[in-house]
Design a protein around this nucleic acid. Structure first.
Length: 224
DNA sequence: ACATTAAATTCGA
DNA sequence: TCGAATTTAATGT
């Protein structure tokens, strides 16, 4: 992924726009880079942008007033987020943190609204994305509470291969085991162990700096 | 926590 | 510009 323009052009919704609409979207979008560990956006801030990841890895997390942090999901190349809060014109309900240096495209509110008013495919895409995200969050809930660690890791990985939310991901997911650990809420050591279990089961193949998924369905139903 | 190995970067020709 | 050497990052135990 190189820049804002390629991100938009390769996004599912971007492909359904006319050239004119695309140019308009482009002119209302800026790029920003976040260092590893920085907050891309914080819970409680007013929402001014719809954001998409050009390159990098973000972690969506919510923390309870009790101080407990719940990791929701990761966002990687080609993933967009924040549409829910933007639509409802409310403050953001979660934090998004960059796990490694991450380049983010930020579309301002008026451009987002303009696209909603002018493009039916754009609306369709939004509805689908909201729906998928909802399903994913429900899955994450049971994930955090009920499942053993190996299974959690399997689910976290499987979540990256939702074609609607993460159109950019191929079979080769570029994520280190440490980052996977952050997303599953486990230590790196444990993530490594869990990964080996999955590898023995023939579901994934781990390599330096990334993980290749061999059997997505098996990964989704792992532990059932 | 430590040892090993892969990748990225630097440096010299 | 190429490749060896060094440094940095990821992995396995």
């Amino acid at each position: 992924m190189k820049n804002v323009e390629t991100l938009l052009r390769t996004s599912l919704w971007g492909q359904s726009l006319t050239e004119e609409e695309l140019q308009r979207a482009l002119s209302g979008t800026v790029e920003r880079t976040f260092a590893a560990g920085a907050f891309i956006c914080m819970k409680g801030e007013p929402v001014e942008y719809w954001m998409g990841i050009i390159d990098g890895l973000g972690k969506m997390a919510s923390h309870w007033t009790t101080g407990k942090t719940t990791s929701l999901t990761g966002i990687t190349n080609g993933g967009w987020f924040g549409e829910g809060s933007l639509l409802k014109n409310e403050v953001r309900r979660y934090d998004v943190m960059a796990l490694r240096e991450t380049r983010v495209a930020m579309m301002n509110r008026s451009t987002f609204m303009w696209l909603m008013d002018h493009s039916i495919p754009f609306n369709r895409h939004l509805i689908t994305q909201l729906n998928e995200r909802l399903g994913q969050f429900i899955g994450m809930m049971e994930n955090e509470r009920l499942l053993d660690i190996d299974t959690r890791i399997a689910r976290v990985l499987a979540a990256f291969f939702n074609p609607v939310l993460y159109p950019g991901t191929t079979n080769l997911l570029q994520i280190s085991q440490e980052e996977l650990g952050y997303l599953a809420g486990v230590s790196r050591q444990r993530a490594n162990q869990g990964l080996k279990v999955l590898e023995d089961a023939g579901l994934v193949r781990s390599e330096y700096g990334g993980i290749e998924v061999l059997d997505l369905d098996g990964l989704r139903s792992f532990g059932d």
